[in-house]
């Protein structure tokens, strides 16, 4: 069972109180973008074994969207952070580096 602490209301909410919102930190390519960019925005997703960043919504609680970092193998939760950011916070990345040295996700890694 996943338990995320909502960064907006502070509730430790378990999975059934939340709605999954898919991969985090996507850049939207809309009208006027190239076909390749639009296709990858629509369809191309990470499918990592290990560290992953996702969007979740506290749907049965305060209703806010937030970001979460977890391990897809063990379901260990590294932390949650604000939705108003385009990349994981330094604090989250540091936490992950301690627990999963050498991790990487997209073009991010433990050193970067």
């Amino acid at each position: 069972m996943l338990i995320f602490t909502c960064p907006y209301c502070g509730v430790a909410a378990e999975e059934t109180e939340l709605a999954a919102g898919g991969e985090a930190h996507l850049t939207r390519f809309g009208p006027g973008s190239s076909d390749d960019d639009f296709e990858s925005y629509l369809f191309t997703r990470e499918n990592p074994k290990g560290v992953h960043f996702e969007r979740w919504r506290h749907v049965y609680g305060c209703g806010k969207w937030f970001h979460a970092a977890r391990c897809t193998v063990s379901n260990e939760v590294f932390g949650t952070y604000s939705a108003q950011t385009t990349e994981p916070t330094a604090e989250i990345r540091e936490t992950i580096s301690k627990k999963r040295p050498g991790w990487s996700w997209r073009d991010m890694n433990g050193e970067g």
């Binding site: 209301c9 509730v11 109180e17 609680g61 305060c62």
Partner: peptide, 10 residues
């Protein structure tokens, strides 16, 4: 105060 679900409802 806790907003949650009881059974299937908010």
């Amino acid at each position: 105060l806790r907003r949650t679900r009881f059974g299937q409802v908010a």
